[in-house]
Design a binder for these strands. Structure first.
Lengths: 189, 189
DNA sequence: TCGGTCAAGTTCAATTTGGAACTCAGAAGT
DNA sequence: ACTTCTGAGTTCCAAATTGAACTTGACCGA
């Protein structure tokens, strides 16, 4: 998604502070898709330092941690469930799950090798411990992100975004045909 | 973002429709970071079909199109500006820019090879044409995404998100030390 | 019960990605 | 003017990502 990056201050450039003010202003105020930009930009600023930290401190990749987190919220979920709710392709998750199992963070799936249908995944005690240990950092980052808003504003923001999410089946998925067909010259390259 | 995915309906699993209701419900209503989840989920649902379409129709990768789009909004910006406002690492963008130049979508940078300091980038006529041709699809997707909201609600949503973005320098960047130090066992793996 | 269809999960291979090291142009300091 | 410092952009290469094909269990209808 999306997103990837820095740490000590100058690796990728996702640092919000200092400069790039021109382009940032343009993307904020002169953007034909202002909402989409805010979405992506905030997601980036939120995710980047957290997953960087997870990687450096625990040696877990982003998809791996996403699986852990997903199972902590919905124990017994399948790889497919995680894929649907996180956007990672299923083969990436397959590998992530295998490694989590190897690391002892997911309890071993009985009978599976070969590719069975719908496997319910469960965190091991160690997996739960890791989740509990790391959760506060995610919560803290969310709180930090929202400090600019009052309690009431957060309420409203949450409500509006929920509305958009709940209507997702109406708008997400494939692009409408008319949109796609705007392009006469398909298939170059 | 980071982000990536489906098309004909069953490639990655980011399809919002049909199933995974359990886990989706849990992530929506039982999440310690509800705002962050909505952010990521919406960004995913928005980006995925668009960049899929860009790739299939124009042969441009996501970072490549991001550079194009960024320059369309802020002509004369540098690679670093794009990196700061998009989150892609600079080497990825360096490659993207090189290819865009090769494809004739970016006007050739005079004197550069070797690595000069701060190069102002400009779209070529062809680059502008491609942007204008593809922009409607992005706008349409944003509109589709917001259909669930009234005009007033969109106004409020935009305002609240802007607030959070503008306060970014306060909260984004490195994780606060206390948060990081929660972990006693650093450096495994 | 058999054959057919579907989809979850895996494997493989080719591409893409991004961390690290490097080059080098301006800026800063003396 | 000379040296040092800073940081934008590039190159390299190991690692991660993912599209495509495959395997296999589950479900369905006759």
């Amino acid at each position: 998604m999306t997103g990837p990056r820095p740490e000590t201050g100058e690796k990728t450039g996702s640092m919000p502070n200092a400069s790039a003010p021109e382009m940032l202003e343009a993307k904020l105020w002169g953007n034909p898709c202002p909402f989409a930009f805010r979405l992506n930009y905030l997601a980036l600023l939120y995710n980047t330092p957290l997953y960087e930290w997870i990687r450096d401190s625990y040696g877990l990749s982003r998809p791996e941690y996403v699986v852990l987190y997903s199972l902590a919220l919905a124990d017994g979920g399948s790889a497919r469930d995680v894929s649907r709710t996180s956007g990672f392709p299923k083969n990436t998750l397959s590998r992530a799950i295998k490694r989590l199992e190897l690391m002892g963070l997911i309890s071993p799936r009985e009978k599976a090798p070969g590719g069975g249908r719908k496997q319910a995944l469960h965190l091991s005690r160690k997996g739960w411990a890791l989740f509990e240990e790391t959760r506060p950092a995610f919560e803290a980052q969310e709180q930090r992100m929202l400090t600019a808003l009052s309690e009431g504003e957060r309420q409203i923001l949450s409500e509006l975004m929920s509305k958009v999410v709940l209507a997702a089946r109406e708008w997400a998925g494939e692009l409408p045909a008319e949109t796609r067909l705007v392009t006469p010259g398909e298939e170059q390259q």
